[in-house]
Design a binder for these strands. Structure first.
Lengths: 154, 154
DNA sequence: GATAATATCTGATATATTCCGCATTTTCCC
DNA sequence: GGGAAAATGCGGAATATATCAGATATTATC
């Protein structure tokens, strides 16, 4: 007998694959009712089986009209490269090194010129009003966040 | 089944876009009757979905002959729009308002989905490890820097 | 059997929607 | 000029929905 988490996971993947766009939108309470468990059980299933590393993007909205939306996403090689870059820049990175990384991504056509310029501006020393080493730490955080946004196509 | 606020929002946007000048004038009570909700529900929809950050201007008149008028703010000049947004967000901006601005720029096709996502991640509260109001101030600076990168074509 | 990993649920918290009850403004009529 | 009708605005309560930390239970591994 499998556990309720496996059953819910299987159900969600089934309805996702039957959807041409590989995207589903659910209400926690409805799924919980259907499988006779508490609503936060759905959170557990989603947080453990539908992660970015496994190729899913989860978005949600609280309150009346709330929902949970799960999308399938792709492009593992690029994701891996970006993960390596993110790991490289922890826990802080200088502006010069950051710009070099962005130039590399531009050369490999993983980002556009506009995106490069946007990111360069976001992490410029004039944008971040802190002393070193805090400025380099904040720069690493912002850089990582932006790179994370590039890992997958939707 | 979606909630009544989303339905009213969609209806208002539809009649606005079918209008060449992107301006509509409504009576609260008429819309409320049409969608079978209380009149103040219209206030809620307008106050949350038709904000300045999202590119709308709302005017109204109470009393007999009262109305609500909603206009789409149009900007012929992209650089001017971005300058106005940069001015709007000084000296600090909340994450919600920033996201609304980016959605507006996305709607007007001034930025791509990827660029929007990149910027949303850069200014997310999880990226900026500060207490309020400093976090909103840093957010404004990063946002301004990124918007400045978009003012002109490369 | 001890420990680690995973699963399930509780209770608190965050966010969004809907409506109530009243305030305010404007127009019309006597 | 005053009162009634026609209109919108708003603070707050109630309700609807999701997330999350942590406690506890179950299962897996050694």
């Amino acid at each position: 007998m499998r556990n309720i988490s496996d059953i819910i996971e299987e159900y969600l993947k089934k309805i996702m694959h039957s959807n041409q766009h590989k995207i589903i939108e659910i209400k926690r309470s409805e799924i919980a009712d259907r499988f006779e468990c508490v609503p936060s059980q759905i959170n557990y299933v989603i947080n453990t089986r539908f992660t970015l590393e496994k190729g899913y993007l989860v978005e949600s909205k609280r309150g009346g009209g709330g929902y949970i939306r799960i999308s399938r996403i792709t492009n593992e090689d690029k994701a891996q490269l970006i993960d390596e870059i993110i790991e490289m820049i922890q826990p802080k990175i200088s502006q010069l090194k950051a710009v070099n990384i962005l130039e590399r991504l531009l050369e490999e056509e993983l980002i556009t010129k506009r995106e490069a310029k946007l990111m360069v501006n976001a992490i410029d020393r004039n944008t971040l009003p802190f002393q070193l080493p805090l400025r380099d730490e904040i720069r690493a955080r912002i850089m990582s966040a932006m790179l994370n946004a590039l890992k997958y196509e939707i």
